[in-house]
């Protein structure tokens, strides 16, 4: 008995504290693999970036590979000459702000209301909202519905349909249920109305989850492409940034269609720029905001996906 216990401890010691050669090899391979994968994830962004700030002639020849040569920011300055790009930025920024704000407010309110036992036919309405996550009429019926509602060639199509987000409502509901009910009750005793309770108690206390859904909503809005592609066919001034970029990447192959004024009027630009670099620069200008807010976002979305995982 005594012996075997001692043996156990010895084995534990061996496996726990001193690494066998096999383990060392494993650890080294493991770290190397992750390092390579990290490089794969980050290098493309770096590569794109050094190509936008290098000498354009070298870029065209494909000479910029690992580090920038002839650093200048003229490409970024030239962006203001790009057709409709300013509009695309305004459209995307405003929809990100308003769309996200309305979505967060609606999700918070709805998520709170469906926790209220007194709500008329509560479980029915909750199911009514949740069930929409599991069916999808399809792209064409959705499109025809938007046509029917007059949501084509219309900025409102970016804002209004996004207000109701069933999954976010569930997230808020789950979170609000974890808030102690006594807080609400005592406020109710003091004569606070439902909306006051929502504004003064529920909203501040559920800020973590609201931040999470706000992050997801904002990223979704910033990356929005499909609605613009399908609904705004003949309103180039309403294209989102992604749609604009798609247009330049896939549809417009030469500089003349991208830059305002055409070939003849912009000889200087024509000489120093080329459409490839302009496209890269637009892409980079779209990525940079995401990369800038990414560190702030990260802690929120990790929390969010954990909550989602608990649900799922």
């Amino acid at each position: 008995m005594n012996n075997s216990t001692e043996l156990r401890f010895k084995t534990a010691r061996r496996s726990g504290f001193r690494k066998s050669p096999g383990e060392v090899i494993f650890d080294v391979t493991n770290v190397t693999m992750f390092t390579i994968f990290m490089l794969l994830c980050i290098f493309p962004f770096y590569y794109l970036f050094i190509n936008t700030i290098s000498d354009n002639d070298l870029v065209l020849k494909g000479a910029i590979t690992y580090y920038p040569i002839g650093i200048n920011f003229s490409n970024y300055i030239a962006l203001k000459e790009v057709n409709d790009l300013g509009n695309a930025f305004i459209v995307t920024i405003t929809r990100t702000i308003f769309g996200t704000a309305l979505m967060v407010f609606a999700s918070a309110l709805a998520g709170y209301l469906v926790t209220k036992k007194k709500l008329w036919k509560r479980s029915f309405w909750y199911r009514y909202l949740v069930i929409t996550m599991y069916f999808n009429a399809g792209l064409i019926p959705w499109y025809m519905n938007m046509v029917m509602l007059g949501m084509t060639e219309n900025y409102m199509a970016y804002i209004i349909p996004g207000i109701v987000a069933p999954f976010n409502i569930i997230l808020v509901k789950t979170y609000v249920e974890s808030i102690p009910g006594e807080l609400e009750e005592s406020a109710f005793m003091d004569g606070a109305s439902t909306f006051t309770i929502f504004r003064k108690i529920i909203w501040p206390l559920s800020k973590p989850i609201l931040a999470t859904i706000a992050v997801f909503g904002a990223v979704g809005n910033w990356n929005s492409f499909q609605d613009s592609l399908i609904l705004m066919k003949s309103s180039p001034q309403l294209f989102t940034l992604q749609h604009r970029l798609y247009f330049y990447l896939v549809k417009a192959s030469d500089l003349e269609t991208v830059m305002s004024g055409g070939a003849g009027t912009n000889v200087v630009l024509e000489n120093t720029l080329n459409s490839k670099v302009v496209k890269y620069t637009i892409a980079m200008a779209t990525i940079i905001p995401i990369l800038l807010v990414y560190p702030i976002m990260q802690k929120h979305f990790v929390k969010g996906i954990m909550l989602g995982a608990i649900k799922g």
Binding site: W120, L129, G138
Partner: peptide, 25 residues
Amino acid sequence: KYSLFLMLLPIIILAFVFLYLPLYG
């Protein structure tokens, strides 16, 4: 129960219009 319901009503209507109505298509 009704005042709570009326607060939820706009969301119910939006869900109907944008999530259920496409089925009509």
